[in-house]
Amino acid sequence: MVRLSGDKALDAGLMLARLNAARVIIVTATDPVSTGMGAGGFGAIDASSIIVQLEETYAKEAKTLLAAARAKADAADIEARTLYMPRQKPADAIMAALEAEKADTIVMGSHGRRGFGRLLLGSQAAEVLAHSSVPVLTVK
């Protein structure tokens, strides 16, 4: 079984919350849907219905993911709130949640990309580390 960095980060965050009698806010985000073709969408095709379907699918998957995370927190008897941030890059969503919720620590997964992959895809963890005013625990 392969465990995703988000799963590992959730486990680490719940353990940290248990040790400190803290509550957690579990955040997931979905990137804005990009057509890759500028303002015109998919060229001459009206892509609005495709974009709506993609965003609905993203929202459904986020709801499923957050329900599973909440169940894990409930099983550990840790107070948790879930937050879905659509149309935002993960780093932006985490920083917005940090501000709104006045959180004192961030626990997040990192894919651990290096070299060319990191250059192309960027690092959401590095972005959060660069802009966070609170401690950040990254889990690979």
Rank of each mutant, 00 (worst) to 15 (best):
M1A: 09
M1V: 12
V2C: 10
S5M: 04
D7L: 07
A9Q: 04
G13M: 03
L16F: 05
L16N: 06
N20V: 06
A21P: 02
V24T: 14
A29D: 03
P32Q: 09
S34L: 12
S34Y: 11
T35D: 08
G38I: 06
G38L: 05
A39E: 07
G40Q: 08
F42V: 12
A44C: 07
A44S: 13
A47R: 06
A47M: 08
A47H: 10
S49F: 07
S49W: 03
Q53S: 15
E55Q: 15
E55Y: 02
E55P: 04
E56K: 15
T57F: 10
T57G: 12
Y58W: 09
E61D: 15
E61Q: 15
K63I: 06
T64Y: 06
L65S: 10
A69M: 08
A73E: 02
D77F: 10
I78V: 15
I78F: 01
I78L: 05
E79N: 13
A80F: 04
Q88C: 08
K89Y: 12
P90F: 04
A91F: 15
D92G: 15
A93T: 05
L98F: 00
L98Q: 10
E99G: 11
A100L: 08
A103I: 04
A103N: 03
D104W: 00
G109R: 01
S110M: 03
H111S: 07
H111F: 11
G112N: 07
F116P: 07
F116Q: 14
G117W: 12
R118D: 06
L119C: 01
L120P: 02
G122H: 13
Q124K: 06
Q124E: 12
E127D: 15
V128P: 02
V128Y: 01
A130W: 01
S132I: 02
S133K: 14
V136R: 02
L137P: 09
